[in-house]
Write a protein that binds this DNA or RNA. Sequence first.
DNA 1: CTGAAAGCGCTTACAG
DNA 2: CTGAAAGCGCTTACAG
Lengths: 347, 347
Amino acid sequence: MASIKDVAAEAGVSVATVSRALNGHPSVSPAARARVLAAVETLGYRPNAVARSLRTDQTRTLGLVISDVMNPYFTELARSVEEEARALGYSVIIGNADERPDLQDHHVTTLLDRRIDGLLVSPTDGGSPRMLEAARAGTPMVFVDRWIPGVDVPVVRSDGRAAVRDLVAHLHGLGHRRLAIIAGPAATTTGRERVDAFREALAAYGLPLPDAYIGQGDFQAGSGRRVTEGFLDLPEPPEVVFAADNLMALGALDAVRARGLRVPEDIGLAAFDDIPWFLHTGPPVTAIAQPTRDLGRAAVRALVERIAGRAGASVTLPARLVVRRSCGEPDGTTPHQSPSPVRRSTP
Amino acid sequence: MASIKDVAAEAGVSVATVSRALNGHPSVSPAARARVLAAVETLGYRPNAVARSLRTDQTRTLGLVISDVMNPYFTELARSVEEEARALGYSVIIGNADERPDLQDHHVTTLLDRRIDGLLVSPTDGGSPRMLEAARAGTPMVFVDRWIPGVDVPVVRSDGRAAVRDLVAHLHGLGHRRLAIIAGPAATTTGRERVDAFREALAAYGLPLPDAYIGQGDFQAGSGRRVTEGFLDLPEPPEVVFAADNLMALGALDAVRARGLRVPEDIGLAAFDDIPWFLHTGPPVTAIAQPTRDLGRAAVRALVERIAGRAGASVTLPARLVVRRSCGEPDGTTPHQSPSPVRRSTP
DNA sequence: CTGAAAGCGCTTACAG
DNA sequence: CTGAAAGCGCTTACAG
């Protein structure tokens, strides 16, 4: 593969001039520039980004360590991160932690070894040593979706509290009183927050959230299935199950179907994170939608700010409830809606 | 960040010895090795992969240019590629072409500039100039899922021909005769092959595939919706629509629902590519499942072979039909099944 | 406007 | 077993 030396020889100039011509440096004569460009053309030369990175100490690359790529929510997040990064002249390398702390650590290490300019992470657990170390060492970093309290890093996330209140209002309006939740790992902020929000919203209606109605999941489908089976085995099963992410909702659907039961007749279902398929499940699933694209964009912008040495602000965007039919329907009438803005999807 | 020089100073040895100690070179005295390791520990030293790559001319990185990450099939493919690559000591950088040739080209260029050791690609179109050039130049490369005829690169893909025959047998057994297809772009191999396979299978039953029953899609949901609307507007709409990928099936579902029609009562639906959600759609969707994990694994292995300078064999794995309820059900009896192995999913 | 030279952080013959 | 030195392909003060 042709190097800058070959181009210089072909153009009859020094490598310095080639470098300047290619990097748009002002002090290059039009003649020299033309000969360099011609040489580049005939040689099919492409600058070696590895060499450039070593010299300039920047890779124009962002690392994204994500909890689980197979989760449509994170897939979309990754996509919007890449889009925004590309618009700003960066590439992104995605590391899939698969909800495993050890894998998360592996990716953080690999990314750091590659000297990425900045790191976007949605921590699987309380934070791996490598990651905390990087944050302390001043590696430009921002948390997306999930975060770690006490670490001085901007957080870009969505606040589902209001949407969860809307959901509980919706369920209460439908006459449901026994409401259960499939929680995410307590080690994650989203795992904790969604349970807290749910509990608070229930309390506003004087409804309890007994321990038996809190199932411990891990954000993956299998746990949703197991937890739902447990709920179904209870002497008094819940009337509605709220899954803290879409994959656990999928698992819940699996479990209900395996028992030959039906949603919402036998048990209602709602989910955190909305995905296109929820429109077509039997029945369409009531869900809380995050502004995923905006989150990805905001996260990249905050990170690029940090890379530039500026502060990089935290951003919190609201999530919103999308009511469908999986929790039952009011008898011919519009259900009681909370005052907050609630979008009804087209049936 | 500490460099190898700092470690050498701390350990009281030369940088050469540090390098040897860290790379497991045999001729390093136990004493020197111990001091190096200690220095590494106290300094928190991590080798700079960029510098190493420049020196060794290998990045231990694979590039994967994929048609559309948001398509669950490709998400799973990407995941298995990363898993296998990691097992073999490689990182992977994913470039999402989003079914756009220009984006595909952008990613191929970026990846090549970064001097990835090998390239895995699922071409969006007939092949971008940059990509064909790379193939000709001898860049280790393998095609996954989609490929480009006439280019001398191993192909790892799945053959859906038998599964499509099984599908048509299933539909025919259910009494359906007017069968339509939402095709992928003719510029892609999978776009063409699936139509061909469908047409041939129909021919075996003396069934025609009129032009009006071939809708041109682009593997994205929007096109599935538009094509399906067109089918529904026909004086004689098809009895079953076969979508050439899962996203277009989603669009078809959207279109049917928007008309207030029902699957399979008003129109049947089948899809190429199976995904977990198809079990829970209303009704569960009959689909052709690819051995996605195996494809990803095989592709990485073939690529690593090429990187090592060996041949790297093409691999073709069979897809299989998974019958569910979206094309209707036999009246209480088991539908006529073709002799090929067909898995029935649990209801 | 241009070139010679230094240097980014490594690895690896070469010599001892 | 060890170190001095060259070199990977760039960029960028420095001098002219």
